[in-house]
């Protein structure tokens, strides 16, 4: 069976371009606005939606994603509500892949089995769980694969050739290359090194390789798109949410459009780079 994620990458390849993966935090700045944002993302040019599951202690995130999580938690977001949002999104969109990204504790407390059942039923396609390295695959990765979900792993500049096979072993859907050693939102120093790293990973896997951390503009996206199968943008989008809010932190008329406008620019940047059709 072809998964939504495979189908989406196949379509992007057929169009001769990289995929745009957009991260927003679920429930930021509130349930209804957040749902409106993800519903608007595909038309704005997003190929894949990464939906951040808020957590009180996001150890691997920079300030923008930390603040987005705090806004969502303050507005009452829970993992249960995030799954409800995915269900609501699926009612109007059967094709755009949705990936939940976050930390293990909320899932662990929800109960792994119950979570996998509810997530699958809601229409979730994959999971990225930052604090579950391959050493802890028994926890969630293997049960998720058995449940038919993709488990997408992060590879980083510290993942050397010796370790890479271990990281890739149970990875499915795509590989997320973290372009810098650092937290989300940190700037990319050298785009040339990113292409080299993607090429290195591709020597070990057939899976698409997407690149994230530090992509803020259409120009950045275009630079990354030259060497990768996809580009992830997150911190810049949640910053767009933040700057659209009123003095009391509430959504305004421009909250959704602040995100979709930036997504449009990023999508245009990616489409400006023609890629050879994959064999």
């Amino acid at each position: 069976m072809t998964t939504r994620i495979e189908a989406r990458f196949a379509r992007c390849r057929a169009e001769g371009r990289a995929a745009l993966v957009t991260f927003v935090t679920a429930g930021d700045p509130d349930y209804d606005s957040s749902l409106a944002i993800i519903r608007a993302l595909p038309a704005a040019g997003a190929d894949i939606i990464e939906f951040g599951v808020p957590f009180t202690d996001p150890m691997a995130d920079g300030v923008p994603v930390q603040l987005a999580g705090q806004r969502a938690l303050k507005a009452g977001q829970t993992l249960r509500k995030t799954l409800a949002m995915v269900r609501a999104f699926r009612e109007g969109d059967a094709d755009t892949p949705v990936i939940l990204m976050g930390y293990y504790n909320p899932i662990y407390v929800y109960g792994v089995e119950a979570f996998l059942k509810d997530a699958t039923e809601a229409g979730v396609d994959g999971l990225i769980v930052v604090d579950l390295p391959p050493e802890e695959d028994e926890e969630l990765c293997l049960p998720a694969l058995r449940a038919g979900l993709n488990f997408i792993r992060l590879a980083t500049p510290t993942t050397d050739d010796r370790r890479l096979p271990k990281v890739l072993q149970n990875t499915s859907g795509f590989v997320y290359y973290v372009s810098v050693t650092g937290v989300t939102g940190a700037a990319i120093a050298d785009y040339g090194r990113v292409s080299d790293a993607v090429a290195r990973i591709k020597r070990h896997t057939e899976l698409p390789v997407v690149v994230g951390f530090g992509v803020k503009t259409g120009e950045h996206a275009a630079s990354i798109a030259k060497g990768a199968d996809g580009v992830v943008v997150g911190s810049a989008l949640v910053e767009a949410v933040r700057t659209s809010l009123d003095g009391d932190g509430r959504a305004t008329q421009s909250t959704v459009s602040a995100v979709t406008t930036l997504v449009g620019e990023l999508a245009a940047g990616i489409r400006s780079v023609a890629k050879a059709h994959a064999a």
Binding site: L132, E135, E136, L154, T156, T158, T159, R163
Partner: peptide, 20 residues
């Protein structure tokens, strides 16, 4: 050897830190 005391302990860290 995997750092567990019964069900407790383990190595729940981001991949960047795992090699370290």
């Amino acid at each position: 050897e995997t750092g567990h005391f019964g069900m407790f302990g383990g190595r729940f860290v981001a991949e960047t830190l795992m090699p370290l």
